[in-house]
Amino acid sequence: MSLKAEIHIPINSDADIVTARQQGRELAQQAGFNGSDLTVISTAISEVARNIVEHARSGEIVLSVANGPGRSGLVVVARDHGPGILDISLAMQDGYSTGKGLGLGLPGTRRLMDEFEITSKPGAGTTVTMKKWRR
């Protein structure tokens, strides 16, 4: 099976964070997730969407279903063209924050998902790609 259509959600304000996590929950449900996985996925989407609003002001969340051999899951990509992250390993430390947050956003989000990858170029933006596989 191949990838289903992608859902693109523009992130420009705090209201878009709510939209992104609700759409993420819906797609996850369609992909066969249930129970606490749905909450975990929408919480993770909320955190990366908020990162976009706080640090880059605008960007997008792209949701898709991944169907691989023997497993399926949800892929979340959070992309922005903001200032980027100077030191990714520092940003991934619990308690580190340059924003108004608790400094748990990125490291906490990684704990919520099965796969988590972050690429960033100072001045060019940040892309977070994360996946949750159905158990």
Binding site: S36, T39, V40, T43, D94, L104, P107, G108, L112
Partner: peptide, 14 residues
């Protein structure tokens, strides 16, 4: 606070 929400909060470190 719903059980799934509590679960996600703990995992997130909140």
């Amino acid at each position: 606070i719903q059980p799934e929400v509590a679960f996600a909060m703990v995992q997130l470190g909140l």
